[in-house]
């Protein structure tokens, strides 16, 4: 067993909590956009508060990422894989923020009420503009599908580190131990 530097406990908690929420949201979004049945209302009323919560958690997570340095990648990793890791993580963070923001913005531009939960409404973040609504509604779908693709790549890379390379990268995020340094 090698000594590892793990992600901070907060980073790991946010990662797994948001992983579950984002995966659930992608499926809720796809089923919601494909149905006109009674589930449409239920899924929609689940989709909006979850999206806003993800936005809030993403902001906390980004702050934590800048304040607490993530564990360094192993020195054995080729430069191309380092670049891929960095690029995909930037893309994941960008999409985590962009998905809820485009959802909120598109409802604002379409003059829909932005219902958080029940009678709790959020203010519009864009002026009323049908053309902008159409653009953002399409963007919301395409960014969602892009996020789905990046998550599949992320999952593939995680499994590569866990099962093939066994270089401690997976354990740095998957560990249940509280501290940042130590042996697993």
């Amino acid at each position: 067993m090698n000594a590892v530097i793990r992600f901070s406990a907060l980073a790991r908690l946010l990662h797994w909590l948001m992983a579950a929420m984002i995966l659930a949201m992608l499926f809720v979004g796809v089923f919601m956009a494909a149905t006109e049945g009674a589930a449409y209302d239920t899924l929609l009323s689940l989709h909006r508060p979850t999206g806003i919560t993800i936005l809030a958690l993403a902001v906390i997570r980004l702050g934590n990422r800048f304040l607490v340095a993530p564990p360094p990648l192993p020195g054995t990793l080729p430069a191309i894989q380092r670049m891929a890791a960095k690029g995909s993580h930037i893309l994941l963070y960008a999409l985590m923020v962009a998905m809820p923001l485009t959802g909120w913005a598109m409802l604002s531009a379409g003059a829909y009420p932005v219902v958080f939960w029940g009678s709790v409404h959020l203010p519009p973040i864009l002026p009323h503009s049908p053309a902008l609504f159409a653009l953002l509604r399409h963007m919301h779908t395409w960014l969602g599908l892009t996020l789905f693709g990046v998550i599949v790549v992320h999952l593939g890379a995680a499994l590569l580190h866990a099962l093939v390379l066994r270089d401690g990268v997976f354990r740095a995020m998957a560990s249940l131990r509280p501290g940042r340094c130590g042996r697993d």
């Binding site: 006109e36 049908p130 053309a131 609504f133 159409a134 653009l135 509604r137």
Partner: peptide, 14 residues
């Protein structure tokens, strides 16, 4: 109606 009108609103707004 809610689902169909949002879809048609997206199409005609574009």
């Amino acid at each position: 109606r809610s689902a169909a009108y949002m879809r048609s609103f997206t199409l005609r707004s574009g």
